[in-house]
């Protein structure tokens, strides 16, 4: 998790300005070499029932994460490491200003990042940046292997480092399938009916606390 940057530029409307903003976000990201944080992971995903789990998260620059949890925890495959990856390899992406949007009552500039090479896994990334605080409020990352993940960020005490207090990942669950034959409930006495209205989106909320940054 790295959401960073506090440079205050009033307005960006061009690709050059977008590149500049992306560069400054990258600079901000580099300020955090290492941190540890306690995370409480609360998944709310159709087809998966799991209670919130506490985990210890360690980050080392540029994009190494170690997550230790007492039990099993579920995290999005994208979202944690992909965003730091963008900032650790800024030369491999082209930043394009894509307008603005009000998020959490704050006007955020939208930057679209396109990979310069075609071979990479990452296809497209969009980030919503609060230019006043230089914080990423939202990201949408699409990769070939893992589909699209929407992440939303909220900040409190570690705002200065660009480290969020809360992240919410929204994920697509349309592809989830229960393997037949593995999960046969022979004690079912009635046939289950698919109502056709099953939820297609799930979310994973991660609440961070007790940051230890660069120590």
């Amino acid at each position: 998790m790295k959401y960073w940057l506090l440079l205050c530029f009033p307005f960006f409307a061009s690709a050059q300005q977008a590149d500049e903003l992306f560069a400054r976000l990258t600079q901000k990201f580099k300020q955090v070499h290492h941190y540890e944080v306690v995370a409480q992971i609360k998944p709310n995903i159709p087809l998966i029932k799991i209670l919130p789990v506490k985990a210890n998260v360690q980050f080392t620059y540029p994009n190494t994460y170690k997550i230790k949890s007492a039990g099993i925890s579920i995290l999005p495959k994208n979202g944690f490491s992909e965003l730091p990856l963008l900032f650790s390899q800024p030369n491999q992406f082209t930043a394009i200003a894509s307008g603005n949007e009000v998020i959490q009552g704050v006007r955020a500039e939208i930057i679209t990042l396109l990979p310069r090479a075609n071979e990479g896994d990452l296809v497209l990334a969009k980030i919503w940046v609060d230019t006043q605080s230089m914080l990423i409020l939202k990201s949408l990352i699409t990769s070939r292997s893992n589909g699209t993940i929407l992440s939303e960020f909220e900040y409190t005490s570690e705002k200065a480092w660009g480290l969020p207090a809360r992240m919410k990942f929204t994920i697509d669950v349309k592809k989830f399938k229960i393997p037949k034959g593995v999960a046969t409930d022979i004690n079912r006495t009635s046939r289950q009916v698919d109502d056709g209205n099953s939820t297609k989106k799930g979310s994973i909320e991660v609440i961070f606390g007790k940051y230890r940054v660069n120590s």
Partner: peptide
């Protein structure tokens, strides 16, 4: 993995499964 394959396209399971 055979059981969790479809979930692991989008999610990752941390911890000792």
């Amino acid at each position: 993995s055979f059981v969790t394959a479809s979930f692991e396209q989008t999610l990752r399971f941390e911890g000792k499964v």
